[in-house]
Nucleic acid binder design. Structure first.
Lengths: 318, 318
DNA sequence: TCAAAAGTGTTATCCTTACACCCATGT
DNA sequence: ACATGGGTGTAAGGATAACACTTTTGA
């Protein structure tokens, strides 16, 4: 069965993101006895002119959702990825994509379902303060790993300890919410996520509980890449509105940004930022859904795309 | 000849960058009667475990240069790319890479040669002010293009005029040196670079001179991606030192950053920035190569990787 | 009238930008 | 002595981060 060129196939993996009930959701495929996976499809250049179109059309056909924004993330080609029993000669190179969609009502999804993305990355949710799992589980394990003798080749690279501090923060290193991939890679390298066991890097994680829900193959890495990219992107592109309904309150908008970025934001500063960026305009209506004083409703001002070079929500500090 | 799966092949393209005589250089392959191309090689997963390693080893073997830094850029998979007479069924998906190297002395390069990257992008070199080609050639052509009726589908996207202002700057839109790809794509879409003719998008560019040297296939797009990524990267990672000799003067360092970013920098502010970032330390020696007062020599402080979360040269204004 | 959430005004601090000047060397 | 590039101090302006307080509704 071996062809010439050893059989390479190109697959597309989509991290389809949405926000519902102010929680960030990721679309996963669940099959019994298998770990959750990102939606996957082969790329067939005979059917689709570009990979972007292929991804968009394939996902839209399978889920009946409209993809508002699509962006290529990274191409994952390591030998050993996608290894399955019996899957010998075939090598799958996979192009990861980020796609954003609005979640109107609950829809039939044909085998796929929405999961809170922090189920896979519990250490990324800082909305109500530093997650305890960091100090209770992650740092003890990583500090042990950082003390091991390092492989010789890496002398001019940052030490394990420096990488640890950059990724998870320390006294003089602030926690940076965009370093999602660095954090996941550290956990993978140190052998404390289940995928490291599945890939044969370590015998077992040494933890009594798995550290976040594991995913199939390298899909958690792809999801980490997607979260990182999205957290960065909302700062200079108005992609957050791809996740919002046509009308929303400023508190909803803030909660959505907080859901994506995993951080708590300062209300006044957030509002000033939104106002200064001229991203929204009052729609006239009000919403009394929450119980207190009714909130004014706003809509996205599409004109900002014409007016400003970098329309986004550059949240920095609190 | 059509196989099942239509025959997909994965190629790697490297934008190998160096700086010599304070000019940014790009490694190109030149064959008679053909446009210059980026070095290209097939990805064979049987020989190399990861694509990064494949790229590194292939380029190092072909050029006898050491690649100091390697980074994946983007995967280009459009149908129609890589079209050659006789090349019917085969589809080449190509993964673009950025690689940095030091140029010790002139070395045998086996068919490849170094070219000033601004030969391909004359509108990107703002070191001695706004390049005249922008006002003389580019803006007149793009403004004509922006006035044409736009395709109907793109109603909620930024208008051609807004894209033009964002890409090339205007009164309230500053010129952003990182938007190299946006600028190239605008020139391509509007049909005024030769590649648009070669791809059959337009009959001719309508210009008497080609706008920058054209490259083969979509290689100029890959190079634009590489320049954009590198211009961004030097702001938060010390990759600039991959292009410097072990010892250098601060003026050399500034000139190298200027060569990459295409901008003129304010001397005092640049020095303060370098000092504040603690990126370098005096080596003790001096250099009197230039004619005036001898300059102190510095070397890169590898320790910054341990000390700072984002060691780079965040040049913003002048 | 009280709880709950919406919404606003103001100040201290830091960082960025720009300006102007002095220094050391070779010819 | 003077031309050439190396090297430095300081002040104005703007953006950021944090503070506390008022307003409007439903129960």
């Amino acid at each position: 069965m071996p062809e010439s060129k050893a059989g390479i196939e190109i697959g597309l993996n989509a991290a389809v993101v949405s926000v519902a009930q102010l929680e960030p959701r990721i679309l996963v495929v669940e099959e019994k006895g298998m770990r959750p996976a990102l939606p996957f499809g082969p790329f067939d250049p005979a059917r689709h002119r570009t990979m972007d179109m292929s991804l968009r059309e394939t996902v839209e056909a399978q889920t009946a959702l409209h993809m508002g924004y699509v962006e290529q993330l990274y191409t994952f080609g390591d030998r050993g990825r996608h290894r399955l029993p019996g899957d010998q000669g075939l090598h799958v190179v996979s192009v990861g994509y980020l796609a954003l969609t609005r979640l109107e009502r609950e829809q039939a999804l044909d085998g796929a379902s929405w999961r809170d993305w922090y189920r896979f990355f519990p250490w990324e949710d800082w909305r109500s303060g530093r997650p305890p799992i960091i100090d209770q589980v992650i740092l003890p394990a990583l500090e042990r790993w950082a003390k091991e003798p390092e492989p010789a080749l890496a002398s001019s690279l940052p030490s394990r300890l420096a990488r640890l501090k950059r990724a998870f923060g320390a006294s003089d290193f602030p926690f940076d919410e965009e370093r999602v991939l660095e954090r996941y890679e550290l956990l993978y390298e140190s052998g404390i996520v289940e995928e490291a066991v599945a890939d044969g890097r370590v015998g077992e994680t040494g933890l009594s509980q798995p550290l976040g829900l594991p995913m199939r193959h390298d899909h958690r890495r792809i999801l980490a890449t997607a979260i990182a990219r999205l957290r960065g992107k909302i700062k200079y592109r108005p992609v957050i509105f791809e996740l919002m309904p046509p009308e929303f309150t400023l508190t909803d908008l803030q909660a959505t940004v907080e859901a994506i970025s995993g951080r708590h934001l300062h209300k006044q500063n957030f509002r000033r930022l939104v106002e200064a960026a001229e991203l929204v305009e009052p729609s006239g209506g009000t919403s009394s859904a929450t119980g207190g004083r009714p909130a004014a409703l706003f809509r996205f001002r599409h004109q900002v795309l014409e007016e400003r070079p970098q329309p986004g929500l550059k949240t920095r500090g609190r």
